[in-house]
Design a protein around this nucleic acid. Structure first.
Lengths: 318, 318
DNA sequence: TTTTATCGTTGCGCGTTATGCAACGGACGA
DNA sequence: TCGTCCGTTGCATAACGCGCAACGATAAAA
C-alpha cells in the first residue's frame, strides 16, 4: 500500500514548519524532539521526498513540505467538520428516524407525541410508514424501520417490546346505535346481531377478534370488508353498523360526537395491548433512542384505562 | 487530544459497511477479522458513538457510520490528489525554482539553458532575480534563492560551488577602437590610456579589476560609472571607450559585430571564474536539482576557453 | 424442533512501532 | 575559539496492531 499520510505525522510536520524548529514543535506538542524528527523522517520516507530543509538553526519546508502542510490543514478542517456533525447526531440536533406503525395510530401520534418531539428537535427528520401488523413486524426485523408501533404483535424472539399499553378493542358505533343504549358493556353475542365492518388483511385488531369469536363459538360475519380505518369509521358514522378498533384510533370522531366507543366484555379483547417494538439487540442511534423514550412516556400517559372502566370516552387534554 | 479518525480504521469501517460484513472486509483486506472488529470498536470508542449495528448475519452502518464513511471517501480522494501533486513535483511536472544571478548572464541564460529547460518541463515556474555579487551570495545563503550564478564569489563555508567555469574578463571595445588593432592580448597598462566605463556597486567583475590593477600598481580611472551592463555596452558601441566584462555577457553585440572582446593579458583576469552555487548542505527539491544539473552541463558546454586562446569570438551554435 | 454453519467478539502471545533519555556531530554567535 | 542550540541517532521500554483460537449468538437447514 502507498503512503498513509498519517494524521499524527502531518501534525508534527505542520508545527515544525510553523515554528521553523523541530525542537520547538516537540516542546509545543509535549513530546521529545526525537519523536518529531523521526516521524517527519518516516513521512519523508513514505513519500520519497524531502519535506524539510535542515539548517544549522531550525528547519524550513520544501515545496513538497508546504504541499503536505496545506493538505494537513484541509484535512484537519474536514475532520473537525465531521466531528461536529457527529456531535450534532449525538445531541439530537440532526438525525433520521424511521417509524412504522398502523393506520390507527396516525391521529394520536401526529397530534401528540410526534408533534412535540419534532418541535423540540427541529433538525430531525422522520420516515413514517403505515402498514399492517405483519408489515410492521417485518420492517422492524429487517431493519427497514427502527421503531414499530403495533397492535397485538406475534411473539418473536427477534423483537423487543419496550412498552406495552393496554388498549382494549372497542365496538365503535354511532351514538344512535342500539348498542349505545345497552347500559352495560356489550358481549360478543350482543354484537353478532348487528351489521359489522371488518378489516381485511394482516391487522392485529382483526386477528384478536377472530380469536375472541372463536373462543365463544360466535361467528361475526361482516357486511363490509376493507383495509382502511377511514372506511370503517365512515361506515359507523353513517350508522350502518359496528366496527372494531381501539378507542384511540377513533379519537377525532369521538370528540366530535360522531361515534362512541364501547369496551367489549371479553377478557382477550379487554386486555389487548399495543406494543412499541424494536429489533432485539439493536443498539439504537441517539435520535431514535430519544424518540423511543419520548413515545413510551407520552403514550403511556395517554392510556385511558389505568383502572378498568366500562365506557371509553377519552378526555382530550386541550 | 480528541479523536484522530485514523485512516486505517476508517478504511476498515468503509469496507465493512460496503460489504455488510466484518469478516468479508477482513478477507478483502487480507487481515484477520478480529483486527477489523477491534479497530472499528476503537473508532467507536474514539467518537463515543456506535457506527455499526451488529446483526446475527453481518453488520450495517448507523447514520454516524455513514457519516464517517463519507468522510473517509472525501479524505481518500484528497489524499490521492495530494499524492499526485507530490508525484508531479518529483517528476518535475510542477515546481518552482528561484534563481538569482548577475545581469551579465541574462542573455546567455534566457537564450540557451533556461529556454531549453522551460520547454522541456512546461509545468515549472521560475523566479529570476537580478542583482550584484553580494546580493546573489546573500540570497543563496539566506535561502531566498536556491541557485545562484555569480562571478568571482567570495569564499564562504556556507556556499557550495557545483561548477566553476573559466570566463576571463575581457576588454570590450568597438571594432574600430585602437586596441582592436593591437595584434596581441592587451595588458593592463595598454588599457589605462583609453577612456573606461566602470561598474559601480558589488560586482565580481569590478572587484577583480581592482585586484588586478592593484597588483600592477595601475590606476584605471573611469569616465563613466554605472550599475548597468547595458550602459556599459552602449558606451562601447558608441566607441566612447573600453568596458570590462566576460565575453559571454556581450554575446549579442559580438555576433552583431558591434563590439569585440579582447582577453586581457593578466593571470588573475584570465583565470576568472563564474560559479554556480547553492547553500552548503542544502538538499534541493527535484525541480531545482534538475535545473542545476542542466545548467552545469549546458553552461560548461558554453565555456569558450577550453584551452587558453587569445581572442574571444564565440561561435553561436545556430 | 434440533442441527449446523456463519457471524462478530474476546483472551492471549508475538512482532512491530512509537517514545523518552542520553549522547553525538554540526552550525552559529560571542 | 568556546559555548550554545540545533537535528539526529542508539538503546531500552511501553504501547499498539495483529493473527490464532475459542466463545456466544444468530440464522438457515434438516
Amino acid at each position: 500500500m502507498p503512503s498513509d499520510l498519517d494524521h499524527e505525522r502531518l501534525h508534527y510536520l505542520r508545527h515544525a514548519v510553523k515554528l521553523g524548529s523541530i525542537r520547538g514543535a516537540a516542546e509545543r506538542l509535549n513530546v521529545n524532539a526525537s519523536t518529531v524528527s523521526r516521524q517527519i523522517a518516516l513521512l519523508e520516507k513514505d513519500v520519497a521526498t524531502t519535506l524539510l530543509e535542515r539548517f544549522g538553526r531550525g528547519v524550513r519546508a520544501t515545496e513538497a513540505g508546504l504541499l503536505l502542510v496545506e493538505y494537513a490543514r484541509i484535512q484537519d478542517s474536514a475532520r473537525e467538520d465531521t466531528l461536529a456533525k457527529l456531535g450534532e447526531l449525538k445531541s439530537l440536533k440532526r438525525g433520521h428516524i424511521e417509524l412504522v406503525t398502523g393506520e390507527g395510530y396516525i391521529d394520536d401520534l401526529l397530534g401528540g407525541p410526534l408533534q412535540e418531539f419534532c418541535q423540540r428537535f427541529p433538525g430531525l427528520t422522520l420516515s413514517l410508514e403505515i402498514t399492517g401488523t405483519d408489515g410492521i413486524v417485518q420492517a422492524v426485523i429487517e431493519g427497514e424501520a427502527q421503531i414499530g408501533i403495533v397492535y397485538f404483535p406475534p411473539a418473536d424472539r427477534r423483537l423487543h417490546t419496550h412498552a406495552r399499553i393496554r388498549q382494549p378493542i372497542c365496538a365503535i358505533v354511532h351514538p344512535k346505535h342500539p348498542l349505545a343504549k345497552l347500559g352495560r358493556a356489550p358481549k360478543l353475542s350482543d354484537l353478532a346481531r348487528y351489521p359489522i365492518a371488518e378489516l381485511r388483511g394482516s391487522f392485529g385488531t382483526q386477528k384478536l377478534m377472530e380469536v375472541a369469536a372463536a373462543s365463544e363459538s360466535i361467528s361475526l360475519t361482516p357486511v363490509v370488508r376493507t383495509n382502511s380505518f377511514l372506511v370503517l369509521k365512515r361506515f359507523v358514522c353513517a350508522n350502518l353498523g359496528i366496527a372494531f378498533m381501539p378507542a384511540f384510533a377513533a379519537t377525532r370522531e369521538m370528540t366530535d360526537g360522531e361515534v362512541i366507543a364501547l369496551v367489549i366484555d371479553h377478557p382477550v379483547l379487554r386486555n389487548a395491548e399495543a406494543h412499541i417494538i424494536t429489533r432485539h439487540g439493536r443498539r439504537l442511534p441517539p435520535a431514535t433512542l430519544g424518540l423511543l423514550q419520548h413515545l413510551i412516556k407520552r403514550m403511556k400517559a395517554f392510556e385511558p384505562f389505568a383502572s378498568g372502566r366500562t365506557k371509553a370516552r377519552r378526555a382530550r387534554s386541550a
